[in-house]
Design a protein around this nucleic acid. Sequence first.
RNA 1: GGGGGCGUAGCUCAGCCGGUAGAGCAGCGGCCUUUUAAGCCGUAGGUCGCAGGUUCGAGCCCUGCCGCCCUCACCA
Length: 503
Amino acid sequence: MTDGIQKDRLEKLLAMQQAGVDAYPPRVPRGIHIGPVLREFDASIGKTVTFCGRLGQVRDFGKLRFSHLSDRSGSIQVGFERDHLPDFWPDRKRVEANDLVAITGELGRTQKGEPTLWARDVVLASKALRAAPEKWHGLQDQEQRYRQRYVDLFASEDVRKTFLLRSQIVREVRAYFDSLGYCEVETPILQPIFGGAAARPFKTHHNALDMPLYLRIAPELYLKRLIVGGLERVYELGRVFRNEGISTRHNPEFTMIESYEAWADYRDIMDRVEGLFAHLCGAVLDNRTVVTFRDKQFDLKPPFQKASYLELFKQHNSGLDWFDHTAVVQRARQLRLPIDGIAPHKLANDVFEATVEDTLQGPIFVYDYPVAISPLAKRTTADPRVTERFEFFVCGMELGNAFSELNDPIDQEQRFQQQLLHVDEEQPSEMDVDYVTALEYGMPPAGGLGIGIDRLCMLLSGSNSIRDVVLFPLLRRVEQDATVQASSAPPTPKGPQPKTAGS
RNA sequence: GGGGGCGUAGCUCAGCCGGUAGAGCAGCGGCCUUUUAAGCCGUAGGUCGCAGGUUCGAGCCCUGCCGCCCUCACCA
């Protein structure tokens, strides 16, 4: 722990403590936010205020010192004058960049017009024992940015802005569904049978019940039980977990919203998606509709493009029929896709993803997916091989998935049976019988929707990696420094070391 | 899991052909009451990711390992 602590800072701390200063006082004068004051600064000149925040680099002129003080809302210059700070002056060099302080002073401007808080009282709120990253370059090391997000956040205004934007997006997504009469619900994260998507789950165990459990890969099957129960419009915004690869678009735990609306079909849900984007552009992008993502511009103003899944498949595979297995295998071979042991419908979808997905600049709705890859969606009346389902894409990235929910219990049971023929790690090994039972009690026609909130945030904030919109992305654990372990647990001379909490 | 790149002072980065470990910022001492990447003078600071190997000699070459980034595969 003492590894990164700077000796000089520790010495300053000790010197102040010996002089009777509490470097970590229980409370300090509470201030007001800097940002609002700066926005109407001229009206505040001459007033005495208190600001609390983190101190920036000090510019020292002997009897005069300047620094900046930053809080969440903004940053203002602080002027320290010897003649106005008789009590603080002896400690001036012990309170330095990165320390947290509460400063009371008079608002004014310098000769060059810079808004400045002329300090009259400085209270140390918390002494920092580590230095902040260099002001000019900031924190460049990606790994350190993710592992020590707290540093990244205070060192970079852009990072702060991104996560404040995310907070706003989440709030406005909720507001949108709330405004349509949806109610927010919470369903189990620990599930005895996982379902609602195709993905490998995380497995865990409940001791008292001596029962294996899975962390949910989707809330879908529980939410539709609530539609059976008559809640009519529900959504859940929360974490799901998929035990799969990590990439710039995938984090093992991610946030998604799923919504279900009774008496609606997938066309209605398209309207919901467009409505949501319109709402978000208004509420979090100041009515901008064009965003820059991965060096391209995308106009999120509805209506979005629409294209049929099977048509797109044909277009990008020289007229190939999705259902012609022999031809699909041939094409897959041509594309050098893995073929062995892949179920026909999965292979055909692999070909779709390999040939079509990257071309979907969007925003675009891709609609009417084959039933074989849509086990929970209702068939179209025109073609029973196809379902009323759409996904929507921006920049080749899938943002969401929606369909007219299958409410025919007999069809649903058959499809579950069908899935059990191709059991792999991504499929539950048993049927969710209770879900079928729920459908047997009768579920109204309903339209459902799932949206990846992290990806939505990537798009709206222009972030290239999901890790830039997840505060603490999953990273491999690094072995703690030996000195840390030694100081946190007394060494035992023999026998195996008990594992410390968190290991 | 495959391919590519990276890891040097608290931070940002140099380091040639293998020959004493470098700069800027931050720190410390000094000067300065209008700076805002302040300036000037001085000073201190290193497990070169870890472990081996080759060599008279390794930050540099070789092998293994650890971690991160990009990319492909799987997925949303």
